[in-house]
């Protein structure tokens, strides 16, 4: 898809960082307010899709998105394993107390979910865009 209309490109220049910021915010508020890793991941993929539509597939295709998805799976699963090293069951939630910040380890699990969603969606977007017609 090489539409590359100047209007879309101008919009994209502002829309993409904004979408990413919102995604970040939504990711972190997910514990108490609507949001979370899945939605943040979909939002990020939407930002990626805007980029893809505005500037062509070339830039997005340089990233091996499936690796992002696999990395996310590693993050999620390893987050489940390390409570076992402390003598707790698999996937047990812990709280990390870093000064004033109290971080549940489920956050890392959610981070993995986000990476998987972005990676998988972007893989599909990019691969479909690369198809010749």
């Amino acid at each position: 898809m090489n539409a590359e209309s100047p209007i879309l490109r101008t919009v994209a220049r502002y829309a993409i960082p904004l979408t990413m910021l919102v995604a970040l915010r939504i990711f972190f508020q997910g514990h108490d307010l609507p949001g979370g890793g899945f939605i943040a991941g979909v939002l990020l993929a939407a930002a990626g899709a805007i980029h893809l539509l505005a500037s062509g597939v070339g830039g997005a295709a340089r990233v091996r998105w499936w690796r992002v998805a696999v990395l996310g799976l590693l993050v999620s699963v390893s987050n489940g394993i390390w409570p076992m090293l402390l003598g707790h069951p698999y996937m047990d939630n812990e709280f990390l107390h870093l000064g004033p910040i109290h971080l549940p380890t489920a956050t890392f699990f959610d981070l993995g979910v986000m990476l998987i969603v972005v990676g998988t969606l972007m893989t599909i977007f990019v691969e479909l865009s690369l198809e010749k017609r």
């Binding site: 997910g30 514990h31 108490d32 307010l33 609507p34 949001g35 979370g36 890793g37 899945f38 999620s76 699963v77 489940g80 698999y90 996937m91 939630n93 709280f95 109290h102 549940p104 489920a106 956050t107 699990f109 959610d110 979910v113």
Partner: peptide
Amino acid sequence: KGGGANAVNVIIVDIRSLDTN
């Protein structure tokens, strides 16, 4: 247990994390 007010998300990432996995 999850320490979160967003029950949907806490269920997904903590209580039923094996399913999500």
